[in-house]
Design a protein around this nucleic acid. Structure first.
Length: 348
DNA sequence: GTCCCGTACA
DNA sequence: TGTACGGGAC
């Protein structure tokens, strides 16, 4: 059986992770802390294990259980998430922690259906928590599993059209016993051996793989062509007060970089930016704009700086004296603009 | 540069 | 059903 082979492979090759119970212990019935599994799985949405580890450890240290996280300030959570991307995840994480803390007494539900009701928990994450935290017979279908299944059965229909049939095929492979370890086994396989460039020579299930047999493993999965990215333009403003304070603002909850600490900027549009300075000042423009690429557009962000006096009254944002911690609270595009700006005007 | 990816919401 | 949402790997 393929699932048995994968479990044996996992027993010998499971990647150590801070939230993971190694197979030797898991087989003896040791379960992980559901809070750790939920936190790591939300972080792992769209993000690799290597990138997640240091964020997971920072969150675990600062907020050791779901009640602690539920009681955290929004700005602290957003600041700790800065740099990890997809910031709606952090807003939903906090919402979810508060629901678990207040409505569930801090105990995570153990069924997919109930987990699915929580903010930030979709089909993948519900199945992952049910399987990994509670050893329920739930089937995870993330991109790793999709790749493995598409190749095992040599599915040539493009994703996401074939997603429903993949769910069925993946479900047939899920064993009743050790479903949590199996979920992690197949995802580990997809992340390491059955990756974009598969190393079929060392794959434990190569003998079961139809794509391998047909010599098309590298071509799969077939995906829909995607739209080209447009370029948008904008201006970021760095106002430095005589005491060294910089004008920063918290972006609105909804939309791009929602809830994150940021420099005041214009709208980002597919035409020359329309000036929207947060206060009247003598603005100077940095030579080269900051370049950044988001999911669906490229951004050319012009940075403008100005020195202002203590009486400056901006129309939005608030002045803050930067500390060593300030850059780490900024999302990457804002960190780029901030770094470019302060190196130009000089901030101690 | 290009490719990759779960969830929310329209 | 399609689109918005970031940063890292390559």
């Amino acid at each position: 059986m393929i699932n048995e082979t994968l479990l044996n492979w996992y027993d010998a090759n499971a990647r150590p992770m801070p939230w993971r119970i190694p197979p030797a212990d898991s087989k003896n019935g040791v379960r992980p802390d559901p809070y750790h599994i939920w936190l790591s799985e939300v972080m792992l949405q769209q993000t690799t294990v290597a990138a997640v580890i240091r964020y997971f450890l920072a969150f675990q240290r600062r907020w050791p259980d779901v009640h602690a996280l539920a009681n955290a300030d929004d700005a602290d959570v957003m600041g700790e998430w800065a740099g990890l991307g997809y910031y709606a995840r952090a807003r939903n994480l906090l919402k979810c922690a508060r629901i678990i803390s207040s409505d569930y007494g801090g105990i995570f539900p153990d069924t997919e259906a109930e987990l699915l009701r929580l903010p930030g928990v979709g089909p993948y994450t519900a199945a992952a928590i049910a399987a990994i935290a509670f050893d329920r017979q739930a089937t995870v279908l993330d991109a790793n599993v999709e790749r493995v299944v598409v190749r095992l059965y040599a599915i040539t229909a493009p994703l996401p059209d074939s997603k429903k049939s993949l769910q069925g095929l993946a479900g047939q492979l899920t064993p009743a016993k050790r479903a949590g370890d199996y979920a992690q086994a197949v995802m580990d396989l997809g992340a390491t051996i059955c990756s974009q460039k598969p190393t079929c020579e060392i794959c434990p299930v190569a003998a079961n793989c139809m794509a391998r047999e047909q010599g098309i493993a590298t071509e799969l999965p077939i995906k829909r062509a995607k739209l080209p990215k447009p370029t948008r333009y904008g201006i970021a403003y760095i106002a430095q007060r005589n005491d060294g304070a910089i004008l920063l603002e918290t972006r609105p909850e909804k939309g791009l970089l929602g809830g994150m600490l940021a420099l005041p900027t214009t709208e980002w549009i597919e035409a020359a930016a329309i000036e929207a300075p947060p206060l009247d000042a003598k603005w100077s423009t940095l030579g080269a704009p900051v370049k950044h690429t988001f999911t669906h557009f490229h951004l050319l962000l012009t940075v403008k700086t100005a020195h202002v006096d203590m009486a400056a009254a901006p129309t939005r944002g608030q002045f803050e004296i930067p500390t060593a911690a300030t850059p780490g609270k900024l999302p990457t595009v804002m960190l780029k603009a901030y770094s470019a700006g302060i190196s130009a005007i000089g901030v101690e």
